[in-house]
Design a binder for these strands. Sequence first.
DNA 1: TGCAAGGCAAATGTCCGACATTTAAAACAC
DNA 2: GTGTTTTAAATGTCGGACATTTGCCTTGCA
Lengths: 245, 245
Amino acid sequence: MKIDTDPKADLSAQIAKSIRDAIINGDMIVDERLPSEAELSDQFDVSRSTVREALKRLAAQSLIRTQRGASGGAFVRRLSYQEAYGQHITTSTLLLSMNAVSFETACEARYALERACAPMACERRTPDLLATMRAEIHRQSQPGLSDESFCASDVALHRALVDAAHNPVLSYQLAGAVEAMQPLMNMITFTARSREEIVGLHSRLTDAVEGQDAAKADTALHELEAYTLHLGRDVMAARAQKSGS
Amino acid sequence: MKIDTDPKADLSAQIAKSIRDAIINGDMIVDERLPSEAELSDQFDVSRSTVREALKRLAAQSLIRTQRGASGGAFVRRLSYQEAYGQHITTSTLLLSMNAVSFETACEARYALERACAPMACERRTPDLLATMRAEIHRQSQPGLSDESFCASDVALHRALVDAAHNPVLSYQLAGAVEAMQPLMNMITFTARSREEIVGLHSRLTDAVEGQDAAKADTALHELEAYTLHLGRDVMAARAQKSGS
DNA sequence: TGCAAGGCAAATGTCCGACATTTAAAACAC
DNA sequence: GTGTTTTAAATGTCGGACATTTGCCTTGCA
């Protein structure tokens, strides 16, 4: 492991990059132990504090885990789907909230991705995921549900749709798009009428998946997109008018 | 900012979480300055070293940037698309390499996502991205190109297809899927015959996008998926036989 | 008055040494 | 052999010191 990187960067960043490259490059395998902090500070010729800061950077990216005690140390960590989900969702959410992504753009992306896995979901859907979708639809029909809970249920239903495709890579990729949309969706105030409309479309979608009718699922998703877009535009328009007055 | 988190976690992790939540929650806006390290160590009642380790964790996630000197400090960072791309690709690549994702699963996910944005790409494609696609096709036709370069060009072409949809959220989400596939694709040895086949499919795809024929693009992507899968399976089978003997 | 040079102060970056805590393994007692 | 104790290695935390960077203020000069 060498440091031949950007000399204007912090030492801890250079060291982190050096170790990170070794891990990504496959020089270190999962569960392999890194040298101790003392050894690393010798190798890189920096203080232990600097090495520690570098290791914390890697820990923040879930690249390593640390164990205390004898025969402890830093170990290359197997990145689990769950952790990757979490990081992806955090990054996606921040990206959307910090970059003034329009509701239209996010909405379009979300439904395009969902339509991509709908055919596979129709083909491979399992009873448990269909049950999840039905349960969320039932929850959405309950009066007195808060807008936030309604949105959360909406996300859960769409996650079930994605998971029904039984492709973990696809689930991982779409988790960011779907979950990151939730803060944007939470801005929408759902009337009783619009909830009824959405629940109806959700039912049609679930029926299509259950009946393995990909074309019908595609149509339902298209209509859901159009309706969501319609609701979002109303909210945006109302907000724009309010701020203008 | 309070610490009421998991008491068994490291202090630096708790503090990082506390600040991270404040940022994600929107309590701190972009470019807002965090308290200095000395002030933070007072507030959280820990040493400056611990605060620094926490800040390095946040820096690793691109949540903050630091400036030295007077009126320097740590600032909430605007997460750019480019940084988000980078993190997403790194995470995706590691996830695939560490979790023994089958070539089939990754391939299926990749083409499903690409098909999702093909209709939009047909609708909105611009001359510059069409030119990029043509240029990559031309590059792929050159004899003597290494397998790695051929794969890289393949990725570039598909990235152009995705970008042609002109939806940054979609581009961001798909970047991980497409780029993370490259190491897997690099394992394939391309014969002259298979390159010819792929270039032909790429040309048909580009023609479809140029002619705004979504159905034709969809078909081309389906055939490309089938052919890629075929090539991948051959390689895997040969490898399995080799290791078995 | 205007401007340039230099000093000042605040903040991060780095280093060092010390101690606390955890943990597995070795040593020991029975 | 088994259970207990000791020990050593490693990370976690602390406090202080100094280096470096950088904006700002002062001072001196024209």
